[in-house]
Design a protein around this nucleic acid. Structure first.
Lengths: 237, 237
DNA sequence: TTTGCACGCCGATCTTGACCTCCACGGGAA
DNA sequence: TTCCCGTGGAGGTCAAGATCGGCGTGCAAA
């Protein structure tokens, strides 16, 4: 994260036209933040909050740090968000919505089912690779025991699994429950692989990693080229 | 959670030979818990802690509640564990070890690779289905942003994915990085499916759900019986 | 030009929950 | 009888969410 070179008061009070200039202060001339229209300020606060929540998680994030990051005082946070949880939920909803949009777009991108599954997997990889790491709020939340978050995560998982289950049902004669389980399998697998790919330093290019996972999804392990080995006991694909 | 019928002091002070009996107390005859050998007490504390951590998560669990659940005072907790985090880590390590043992046993149960993969998936389902829901500590920890937990989860994921990657490398000519990605895919998928199966009320019997996921792993979506449909565009398996 | 108001802002502080510790008690075994 | 070990009532400490009370700028109206 970017190091702050001045204490906030000094840094900010003296910031005129974008240039740092330390300024002395008397008690009756409080340091003043730059005034912004309400919507612009709210957007800025959300950005700062995302940085802190992504770095620290909900529980270790403190409102003081978020205010510092935004360059405002704490009361300004409470002018825009009733509390810490509300701030977090606003971010969560924004990013969960983005992921579902990506998945829906992927499913709508073709009528060829194999490609629809591959595109859905690609959607997870794209989401996880985004700047600002919003996936950390959606897939790795440390607030999962809070009912509001739990419900949202469950709904998001159900929605994405259901979307994939529709594809599975188009192609197979599997009953609803089984198709849903497989839909959950694929969306879960995509999520976990995308996160693993990111953490591993992207030694496999993203598109290739997504394609590999798509191949696994469609053809299974049996669909990969075999090495003939004595004693391995593998059946032919 | 089970309702307590008496205040803790009254409930416990008067519990003689397993029977509740409210007992008056004077200041110089403090209520006394049942004295236990140190290892037995430690095990009891861990059991109580597991109940509370599973129900509430780390952050919402309070040491008072854990002590209450164990029927002791708080100093007793600190006699056995340096702090709250240590208590949690002891439980985490116990259960993560159990899961890895299950996976290793599954992989050792046969030399037939397809069965080894299926058995590994079954190991996840068995672990998730266990009484006391230890999977909640291992797969759904709200302490994932704590370094000690993050490292343990990462190591456990790496270990299980690596074990499956060994099987994949035996069977295919995939390079290490690709095999590892697929190993992560399968172990992640197994974990998510097992948890989904549990939450869904087990409408599919456990063994059948595990078998379905194993089939997906080995044969992919393409390996399921097809419905012939106009316009679906699906390729034959 | 002056005044009043709306809006965005902040330093200081309150409140409270919860981790952890102090200090002393009592029973059982040697 | 003494000592050790397991035990508990009470409370200290402090971090952090949230709020109080007031400031200052810019714009519009008189």
């Amino acid at each position: 994260m970017q190091a702050r070179l001045l204490p906030r008061k000094m840094r900010f009070a003296g910031r005129i036209n974008g240039r740092d200039a330390p300024v002395s202060m008397s008690p009756d001339t409080r340091s003043r933040g730059v005034r912004m229209p309400r919507p612009a300020r709210r957007a800025q606060l959300l950005e700062a909050a995302q940085e802190v929540f992504v770095e620290s998680g909900y529980h270790s994030a403190v409102m003081d740090d978020i205010a510092d990051r935004a360059g405002v005082s704490k009361p300004v946070l409470y002018q825009h968000f009733p509390g810490k949880l509300d701030l977090y939920l606003a971010l969560f909803d924004q990013h969960a919505g983005e992921l579902l949009d990506l998945i829906r777009a992927a499913l709508a991108s073709t009528t060829e089912n194999k490609q629809r599954v591959a595109a859905s997997i690609g959607a997870y990889f794209e989401f996880v690779g985004r700047d600002g790491a919003p996936f950390r709020l959606v897939f790795e939340s440390d607030l999962i025991n809070e009912t509001a978050i739990r419900q949202r995560v469950d709904k998001m998982s159900q929605d994405s699994a259901e979307a994939i289950a529709e594809v599975i049902k188009e192609d197979t004669d599997l009953p609803d429950a089984e198709a849903h389980l497989l839909g959950m399998a694929l969306s879960g697998m995509a999520q976990i692989c995308a996160r693993f790919w990111l953490v591993q330093g992207s030694s496999i290019p993203r598109d290739e990693a997504a394609r590999l996972v798509a191949t696994l999804s469609w053809r299974g392990l049996g669909g990969f080229p075999k090495i003939e080995r004595e004693g391995s006991g593998s059946e032919p694909g």
